[in-house]
């Protein structure tokens, strides 16, 4: 299988209370989505250290998704506001270091938004497919 055809790999950090439950709901309602995503459960999106995100990229993830409750709905009331601040910055910084910001997504997905979770994975998978594998692009640019 050539790199271009390989299914992209997405690491998803989902908060336990909303987004993980949303992903579960996609399951309970048998809403299928690409097999590209692998989920790591965290208590709150605010638990996601940007270092985890970069690590995932470095180990070969083509995309990283962080998902949490909608602003105002965080189970811990304010966690996702900090998440939002932090990742506004991190997204830009990753991009600045050459990790295309389209590879990183933060999404607010509630426990009732199973379809939104599935849709997010579909969209991301499609976008990542178009972007192609990460290293190849960098290697090419380096060679120029």
């Amino acid at each position: 299988m050539s790199v271009a055809e390989r299914e992209p790999k997405i690491v998803g950090f989902l908060c336990n209370w909303c987004s993980y439950a949303g992903a579960d709901l996609a399951g309970t309602s048998r809403t299928s989505y690409p097999t590209s995503v692998r989920v790591i459960r965290v208590p709150c999106s605010g638990r996601v250290n940007p270092q985890f995100v970069l690590r995932a990229f470095q180990l070969g993830a083509d995309g990283v998704l962080v998902a949490g409750c909608h602003p105002g709905d965080c189970h811990y009331s304010t966690g996702n506001y900090f998440t939002r601040r932090r990742f506004l910055l991190v997204k830009r910084f990753l991009d600045y270091l050459g990790i295309d910001q389209r590879r990183f997504r933060l999404r607010w997905i509630s426990a009732s938004e199973g379809p939104k979770f599935a849709e997010t994975i579909r969209e991301m998978t499609e976008e990542l497919r178009q972007l192609g594998p990460r290293d190849a692009a960098a290697v090419e640019a380096h060679a120029e």
Binding site: K9, V11, R38, I40, V42, P43, R47, N49, F52, R55, A56, L59, G60, A61
Partner: peptide, 17 residues
């Protein structure tokens, strides 16, 4: 954070990728 410690999530990322 106990139960979701740095080393645990780190290990999960490594295992997953």
């Amino acid at each position: 954070l106990l139960g979701f410690s740095n080393e645990q999530v780190w290990a999960e990322v490594e295992a997953l990728c």
